[in-house]
Design a binder for these strands. Structure first.
Lengths: 347, 347
DNA sequence: TTGTACGCGTTATCAA
DNA sequence: TTGATAACGCGTACAA
């Protein structure tokens, strides 16, 4: 287009163009330019046009710091991914879990139309301090917090710091933040009912960590639905832990003909090991996963699993946060989503 | 109207505490408090102590917007993940690729000690506009750009917008940004030499997209090292594309005894399909991947592959960006890293 | 409908 | 070594 953008230094302003310069160029006051930019309706159409032309010509971009200083808003929110301590290659895991990507997509869906930016911030324990400082400084207006371990201090700290936040699951200890969640027990029940309907009578389960609500509730729900004692081994939601767990279960309970695995990643590992052990899936052993993640599709055979409307839930998180930002006095609320069964080939 | 929000006596302000309030509490001027916060050495130790006490007591946190307005810095940089158009579930892929996690870790390593925040921003084509606006507004001081397709307009646009940036690979078209890269051809050569040393004589390759430099160069390097024509099928770096490619290759060239696959994800898929086709890896067909990602470890057998020092490279990107931020006149430079062969069980 | 003038919270430049 | 005071760029009552 025009070369006006690449103006050489010496045209007065050293840095980026300011509101003042646009005003001069358009022959109006700063206030009027500001009104045009902020879409205030009471501006003469002809003046508006002139201002807009000047803005385009000069290549003006509002200075966020200055605007934010007076409006006390940044029009951006953070997606903070919190992880428990001692889990080593956290970042590697973070970016291997498709869940995060779906959350991001779901949140963007509602944030974008509002003109609000989403920035992703990984928060491993050694970095908590820095993350909190970042959030406190007012880089963002609020936080979508993805947290899945009970000892996470972040929800509480965010509350103490008066940083508006919405959680991705029911917190282990009550904190006055809004949250969304899926009915975990209902999901486990769906899995149990499906296995039972298939005629399987020797059921076992690979459950998740028992120090976090989803881990607990998926086990509780499965047990309740089966209506008796169920052998189980706990994994940590990684593929490797699923492999180890299924080895132990089959060794101890060779009669097993149905397994509920608390997430797809572990289930994928379990299915693979079952193959190595000479058990056919689903003929000999039926396997039901949880999450309906891409791991469910990668598995051979593809996994029957419990679907969570992750994108929808993330969208709702964003909605809750927006509502809270618009009305700080708004009282926290929780929104619970219903899971559903997706039947593929593993059960 | 403020209600009982303000608990502290004498705290007339509704929002967060300001420099002024700390100054009053410590009995000094704003300037002195500012000096303490910014670690200016010329401050009386006793006064410093008093100020620090006041800061802790009041719970003061600097207002980023105000500071940034005058310093023209934000002390945070963005990791922008750019993706080509038409690739559908971009976010899902983004967060399934461990590479991003390693880049993040490597960058954090050098940024954290400097007190600089890293925010991650996914940039799918429909969102480019918003991302550019975000960056232009001065939310961050600079950009680490992860981009791997030739038609990416972002490097050029960032340059036009005068946003300091460092690229994760040599750009397809020259742009005055610094970048880091690995010697792709050298990596492919390592793979070829290893296969040849194993006595394999019927080599084929599953190469990457030929519209991006890594895809091109890994093929060129392999061909050159093998010293002749090599059958190949191009994938798009996904596991599924690796599966499809190996089917076609084996069908056309059943005598194949060695395959170089341009990334681990495709290689993992290829190995799996080879098993289904009744070919043992590595006895019947040796397979060498590229990237040394976690996919290489997930594969059965674990993949022999080409290692890139991803974390180191990301760290160097951060270093280059910091240097550029400290001295804007600094001329762009490129840093090329050497790959190495990691021998596991697939070849 | 437009312009004037003040304030947002901080750093930086001076004197003292 | 410390303290006034002037920017920094913008939004917005209030006045015109």
């Amino acid at each position: 287009m025009t070369d006006e953008q690449s103006r050489r230094p010496g045209n007065g302003s050293a840095g980026r163009p300011t509101l003042e310069e646009v005003a001069v160029a358009a022959g109006v006051s700063r206030a009027t330019v500001s009104r045009v930019i902020n879409a205030v309706p009471t501006v003469d159409p002809r003046i508006r046009a002139a201002v807009e032309r000047a803005i385009a010509e000069i290549g003006y971009v509002p200075n966020l710091a200055a605007r934010s200083l007076v409006t006390r808003r940044t029009d951006s929110v953070a997606l903070v991914i919190s992880e428990p301590p001692g889990h080593g290659a956290f970042l590697n895991r973070l970016f291997t879990d498709p869940y995060i990507g779906r959350v991001t997509a779901g949140a963007q869906e509602v944030l974008r139309p509002e003109g609000i930016h989403l920035v992703i911030i990984p928060a491993d324990p050694p970095g908590h301090h820095l993350v909190l400082r970042y959030l406190r400084q007012g880089h963002v207006d609020g936080v979508l917090l993805i947290s899945n371990h009970s000892a996470d201090p972040l929800p509480r700290q965010l509350y103490d710091l008066r940083v508006p936040a919405v959680l991705s699951a029911r917190p282990a200890r009550p904190v006055p933040h809004s949250y969304v969640d899926v009915d975990q027990q209902a999901g486990a029940r769906l899995a149990a009912e499906h296995l039972l309907a298939l005629g399987r009578r020797h059921l076992v389960t690979i459950c998740g960590p028992q120090d976090i609500p989803p881990g607990q509730e998926r086990l509780v729900g499965f047990r309740a639905a089966v209506g008796g004692n169920v052998p189980y081994v706990a994994g940590d939601f990684t593929r490797a832990s699923g492999e180890a767990a299924v080895r132990r279960l089959i060794e101890r309970h060779p009669e097993t003909d149905g397994i509920f695995v608390a997430n797809d990643l572990m289930a994928e590992g379990a299915v693979r090991v079952l193959g190595e052990l000479g058990r056919r899936v689903p003929q000999d052993v039926a396997v039901v996963g949880f999450d309906d993640s891409s791991a469910a599709l990668d598995a051979r055979p593809p996994l029957t699993t419990i679907h969570q409307p992750v994108e929808e839930m993330a969208g709702e998180m964003a909605q809750l946060l927006l509502a809270r930002l618009r009305d700080p006095r708004r009282t926290p609320r929780s929104v619970i989503f219903s899971p559903s069964l997706v039947v593929r080939q593993s059960a």
